[in-house]
């Protein structure tokens, strides 16, 4: 598969991606190198699948990441993300209408 679709859970990437948005993620890593400002999907040892922004890429190939929201966790708490743990780069975001259903 050249892509993967995931659902965003949480507020750390607001306003760019909101909780409940669906993201189309390109997963053919050989075709791109994430650069600063790109949103990437990666596997984190403690938190599982995460989506964050690339802040910088170190000489050792590890990425410093951050969220957009001021309260987001970032490299200080997440650690640097090794190249191998990066799954792909977010290409598209699909947002639904905000709703608060009656039930």
């Amino acid at each position: 598969m050249a892509f993967q679709i995931v659902r965003v859970a949480g507020q750390s990437m607001e306003p760019k991606y909101r909780s409940g948005d669906y993201l189309l993620v390109w997963t053919l890593k050989r075709l791109f190198k994430p650069k600063a400002g790109d949103a990437i999907l990666f596997k984190h040892a403690r938190h599982g699948l995460m989506v964050k922004l690339v802040e910088s890429r170190g000489a050792d190939g590890r990425y410093a990441v951050r969220g957009l929201h001021p309260l987001s966790s970032e490299t200080r708490t997440l650690g640097l993300i090794p190249e191998d743990d990066v799954i792909g780069k977010v290409a598209l975001c699909f947002r639904g209408k905000p709703k608060r259903p009656l039930r």
Partner: peptide, 25 residues
Amino acid sequence: MIHSLLSKLDSKVGLEKASAHCDVP
């Protein structure tokens, strides 16, 4: 439109969840 299709797909097959938690303890 696409979101609602994806949402239906999600409820059927269960798409993976990408965490964007604030995570400030």
